[in-house]
Simulated assay, not measured.
Amino acid sequence: MPPRLEGAWTEQPLFFVSDLHLSGTAPGRTQTFLHFCASLARGTGALFVLGDLFDYWIHWRQLEESPATEVLPALAELTRRGIRVYCMPGNRDFALTASVLERFGIEALADPSILLVAREAVLLTHGDLLCTDDAAYLRFRRVIRNPLLLGFLRALPYPVLQGLARGLRRRSRRAVAQKDLRVTDASAEGLRQAFLGQGPFAAAEAPFTRLIHGHTHRPGQQDLPGLGRRLVLGDWRDDGACLVRHDHLGWHLWHFPTGVDCTDSSAP
């Protein structure tokens, strides 16, 4: 059952981001995200990172390397300012453990999770579970996240793990490039399961009227007849990203740092 988060969210702004893919090879993206963190006002209630904060995470020694040496302390500073920070595993950084996050005051968020906002139960997920047409990826997901396999991998030397991660990323990029775009997007069946609370999304709070996810890199919003509204987060680039904000005016999809409203677009 997905865990449920409750808080005094009605009045305080909430921010939702995903797919930052921060790495040492993209310093501009890291600086943009640090700018975003510094811009959050003290009255902000929470920041939700819905997966893929890092381009990959394989070992605790990454704590000694950029961008972790910059980003995790910046998130810790948010918690010291009274802003709760939640981080959900993504398909790239699923090995980022709760114990590592807790060092910086960051709360690990299960995928999926349920957020109660103004009496509405909102379903949060990274998004890869929605891609039910990509059967090969979902099989790989189940295998690579097996606790026994993860335990074996963590015992390997860090340089070996780095080589494995680079190889997996290359193969992943080739595989995605060869697939039909519809296969790598959320499927109609995956969305139906999510809104109705079926399969991996089974929950007593279902059916849901609002879903927030990333992963597909296709930001927008979409009203699904008979189900609810889907808000899709954008991936981050040097010039920012489309993210979701909730405040006293409701739900918004907008671009940081330009402030341009993204709500006129529709997720495919």
Rank of each mutant, 00 (worst) to 15 (best):
L101D: 00
I83D: 08
D93L: 09
R80A: 12
P73S: 05
L78F: 12
L78W: 05
A76R: 10
S99L: 11
E70L: 15
G105V: 08
F94W: 00
A98E: 15
A108W: 08
G82V: 10
V71Y: 06
A98W: 05
T79G: 01
E107M: 14
R80T: 12
S99Q: 13
L109Q: 07
A95T: 14
V71L: 05
V71C: 05
E102D: 12
D111Y: 02
L78M: 09
R81K: 10
L101R: 02
C87Y: 08
L75G: 07
N91M: 09
N91Y: 09
L96A: 05
E102L: 10
S99P: 03
Y86K: 03
I83P: 10
P67A: 02
Y86H: 13
A95Q: 15
A95M: 15
G90H: 13
A76Q: 12
L78G: 06
L101M: 08
R80N: 10
R81T: 06
A95V: 10
V85I: 04
A108K: 11
N91K: 05
E107W: 02
M88P: 11
G82Q: 07
T79E: 04
V71F: 11
P73N: 07
P67F: 00
E77K: 11
E107T: 15
T69G: 07
P73W: 07
F94H: 00
I83T: 15
L75A: 07
I106D: 03
L72R: 03
A68F: 02
G82D: 13
E70V: 03
G82S: 11
E77H: 13
S99M: 09
R81Y: 01
P67Y: 01
S99V: 10
C87W: 10
I83C: 15
V71R: 07
A110Q: 11
N91E: 13
A74M: 13
V100H: 02
E102P: 01
G90L: 11
G105H: 12
L75N: 07
N91G: 03
I83W: 06
D93A: 05
R84G: 09
V100F: 00
A76I: 02
T97Y: 04
V100R: 00
L96E: 11
G90Q: 08
A74H: 12
R81I: 03
E70R: 14
N91F: 06
A98M: 05
A98D: 13
G105D: 09
